[in-house]
Computed example of a mutant assay.
Amino acid sequence: MPAQDNLEPVLTAAEVNSLMATVYPQLNDQFTFYEALDVFPGGCTVRLNAGARHLRPGGTVSGPSLFTLADIGGYVCVLSHAGPDALSVTTNLNINFVRKAEAGPIDGHCRILKLGKSLMVFDIDIVAGPERHTVAHATGTYSIPPKRTPS
């Protein structure tokens, strides 16, 4: 399924990372665990630099860590395409875990399926390991707050 046509980003990956560091500092604290790598028309690529704190027993990256990466992918898409309103929120997120992921770089390839005035629907393919196999796939919806008019 192709992404929605005619979508142009309004922020770069660096600008989104800077915005998230300001409005959501607890995401990474003093580290760079979650980051936007690229923003392109209709999508983005995000990364989880998974370390020991992201592992569950058995050396597998935890589901909540992968879920967070999926949510961050949607957040980066909505910020970079609908505008830098930090009050955009997740209204739905469904994830399927396909295979285990080990520590290391885990990338999320996110695409916008539909961007409207009040909602954005996206999906994300999360890949890891040397072969970059899919470890999870998610779909979600973000609510976009109404544009505020200056008074």
Rank of each mutant, 00 (worst) to 15 (best):
L27G: 10
P25A: 02
H54G: 04
G74C: 10
Y142N: 10
K100D: 12
A128L: 04
T91C: 02
S143R: 14
P25G: 04
G116E: 01
K114S: 15
H137D: 00
G129V: 02
I124W: 00
A21L: 09
L113A: 12
E15K: 07
A82H: 04
K114C: 04
K114G: 05
G42V: 03
V16Q: 10
P84C: 05
A101R: 04
A13N: 07
E102F: 14
N92C: 03
M20D: 05
D38K: 11
D5L: 15
Y142L: 09
L7I: 08
A70W: 00
L11Q: 06
S88R: 00
P9S: 08
M120I: 05
T12W: 11
L93Q: 09
V61A: 05
S143H: 09
P2R: 14
F40N: 02
R56G: 04
A138V: 03
C110I: 03
E102W: 01
I144P: 08
A14G: 10
E35L: 13
L19F: 12
A14Y: 01
D125S: 14
D5M: 05
S118F: 00
P64E: 08
V98G: 14
K117S: 13
D107F: 08
Y142K: 12
P9N: 11
I112P: 00
Y75R: 14
G104L: 00
L7A: 14
G104P: 03
L115T: 14
A70P: 01
L87C: 05
P64R: 08
F122G: 03
K100R: 14
S80R: 08
D85V: 13
T149V: 07
Q4T: 06
V61N: 02
A128Q: 04
S118T: 15
M120G: 06
V89Q: 07
A21T: 08
E35G: 08
A3P: 12
P105G: 12
G51L: 03
R148Q: 09
T141K: 08
Y34R: 02
I112N: 03
G58C: 05
Y75T: 15
C110D: 06
I144V: 09
S118E: 01
L55I: 15
P105V: 06
G83R: 09
P64A: 10
R148M: 10
E102G: 15
V121L: 11
V46A: 11
D85M: 13
R148I: 15
T32G: 08
A103I: 01
R56C: 04
P146I: 09
A52Y: 08
D85N: 11
G73H: 07
G74R: 03
G129W: 02
T134S: 15
S18E: 13
F31Q: 09
V10K: 04
H133V: 06
F97C: 10
S88N: 05
A138R: 06
K114F: 11
F122S: 12
H133E: 15
E35F: 08
T134N: 12
A3N: 06
